[in-house]
Design a protein around this nucleic acid. Structure first.
Lengths: 363, 363
DNA sequence: TTGTAGGCGTTATCAT
DNA sequence: ATGATAACGCCTACAA
């Protein structure tokens, strides 16, 4: 059905191409038409393609009357230049690739919303690709970004901090700037902005210590560099405040209910635990659910802290105390660094962002 | 810093362009290089560009030995053809534009994750643009999609069901298929998949009626066609089960706390309300918070139902009963219809999806 | 089986 | 101020 229509269009266009007057006619009658080219506009306006191009690009070297005439034609026929063709000659696609494991991760969703808007205002489009946790898929995406000749790429999350990705960047994307949000790779074209989760979690331990909590555990989902930093901060905190050399690290990944079950199992085995730090807000939410199902009162019996300070903290009941790793600052830094590099300005290769605790009802 | 490096590259390339042997040398030493062209690969392989093109496109008309040789060169120099140039000649960008108000809306985040992955498997890339609620911004995005010559577009959410957008589509995007998720526009190239929220909310009213609830209210955030359908279903239900002709509709938009406040105000004024249906899960979560702050027990004193059945329903405490509007089915239908249209198959212009209630603790 | 030439829709360079 | 012409990197008749 759609295609049938298209045949008509193609026919109409063939017809149109040789008679200027026909343009008007077809347009008035509202027949759909293929995208026009700069040559067609030029012909209608009675000028050359270069003149139209000059008008399009606001060149000062166009007589005002000519400009006006051309603009009228452009407007009348809804002409807009093909960015594809432009990209070819300009050697710049004006596109930025954004890779992320999963748009459902709330703070990533927030980040792409922000980053995309800022870049859009600068005339860039975003090619968003969700890779999952699969390494091969990530490499494939990097190849695609190369084929699409994106002007830059943003990798969201420390889980992109992999040797295989480093190699792929060297191989495919060594000439465009790459920003890693919350990660870094030692490569001339890679820029990293890292959240100081080490000290953040250290502070979380201190908070729980000061609240008089006796026995803490850290619950992580996946083994990422970011989580390793959190765990390191936890270990340092346990050492410093509790003189404990073998901090309790629990792994609870998977979907919500799966995570619930794992937390539940752990708490059953360790009834003396009275403080939990979760690697992620949503994981903490699953933990809260598990505690509630076990009739463990929060924060009376157990204190809970999440990380990210996403909207989830407020949806939780009791509302979740969380380490704010400043994901908005992170996004802003990503955009600023990206734009700076694209404009050829000098940019810090690797920087760190402070984090801070936002206390709510679970502590 | 980055640019300085680039000058070296450009110099290296200039040098390379005229000596085949140099290619090897530069590559072994690992110097970054500009993307190669099909001509350069052809020269190195000692064949013509068309032969390389044939290999690239798996044409059968290539001698096996030649193919092998060419593939080796391609592999050795990490050559990959420019999709930009391909798009120009093929008149197809292999890109799909995805417009959505805000990636932070959970079920939209889920949808783009799904849609993007499926389309990626079909060789398409997704240009994701978040438009907010601003009409002008949406029109601007449609123009951009036209400039980028996307092969199709997906508009997420009924809020795209606007006359201005209909006009813009006629003007700029009349030749590519456009799928609206949960909305429709009467245009030859627009396809709609709509969630049957009318009957869904009608069922919600029935559920609350059967639970013995006496006085209901519907709380909506924004005035979208989707919410209007929900409200219509609510009104029909109130008529049918409660013989009430003036159903109570409350507007509570804005951020989480703002929504909380508005629900709070309303409940203060109407203490006899014992059943609330919210237009969205997150809004319901804000409602639950308000009720809790007012010491109103859920579901003992008031029953609460959300809509969408996102992960939020499980994060809530008590867990949220919700109308599942089958957003995964919706996404699947969007992808399937999109692919069908792109392949020239016949596709239903407008279809409806059933919704169903998932009962949890708030009712 | 392979190569040559022309074109996709722009912009840039050089004339005029 | 304007126009002709040659790129940009690829694909595809058509010719050999």
């Amino acid at each position: 059905m759609f295609l049938d229509n298209n045949y008509d269009i193609i026919f109409a266009i063939e017809f149109i191409k040789f008679t200027c007057l026909e343009y008007e006619f077809k347009c008035e009658t509202g027949i759909m038409m293929q995208n026009m080219t700069i040559y067609e506009i030029a012909k209608i306006a009675g000028v050359s393609a270069s003149t139209v191009s000059r008008v399009l690009n606001n060149s000062p070297n166009v007589k005002e009357a000519t400009r006006k005439l051309v603009l009228e034609c452009i407007d009348k026929y809804h002409y807009s230049p093909s960015e594809t063709a432009r990209g070819l000659i300009k050697q710049s696609s004006k596109m930025v690739g954004i890779l992320l494991p999963d748009a459902r991760i709330m703070h990533h969703a927030e980040s792409i919303t922000f980053i995309q808007r800022e870049l859009s205002a600068m005339g860039y489009c975003c090619l968003v690709m969700t890779t999952g946790r699969d390494e091969q898929e990530r490499l494939r995406c990097l190849e695609i970004l190369n084929q699409r000749r994106v002007d830059a790429a943003v990798l969201m999350g420390s889980s992109f901090q992999l040797d295989s990705i480093k190699n792929a960047i060297e191989k495919y994307l060594s000439q465009i700037p790459i920003i890693i949000a919350n990660g870094y790779l030692e490569l001339p074209n890679v820029y990293g902005i890292i959240s100081d989760e080490y000290n953040g979690v250290l502070e979380c331990v201190r908070l729980l210590f000061e609240k008089g909590r006796k026995k803490l555990a850290f619950i992580a989902d996946y083994d990422t560099p970011s989580n390793q930093r959190k765990i390191a901060g936890f270990s340092a905190g346990m050492e410093k405040y509790y003189r404990e050399h073998t901090p309790l690290i629990i792994w609870a990944n998977g979907e919500f209910h799966e995570a619930c079950r794992k937390v539940s199992e752990f708490m059953q085995k360790s009834p003396n635990i009275d403080g939990l730090i979760f690697a992620e807000d949503q994981l903490a939410a699953a933990g809260l659910r598990a505690l509630r199902d076990m009739q463990i009162s929060v924060p009376d019996q157990v204190s809970v802290i999440g990380i990210n300070n996403s909207i989830i903290t407020q949806i939780c009941n009791p509302s979740l105390t969380a380490l704010d790793n400043m994901s908005m600052d992170m996004s802003a830094a990503v955009v600023n660094n990206l734009i700076a590099v694209l404009q050829g300005r000098c940019v810090v290769k690797k920087m760190s962002l402070y984090s801070r605790i936002v206390e709510r009802e679970t502590t």
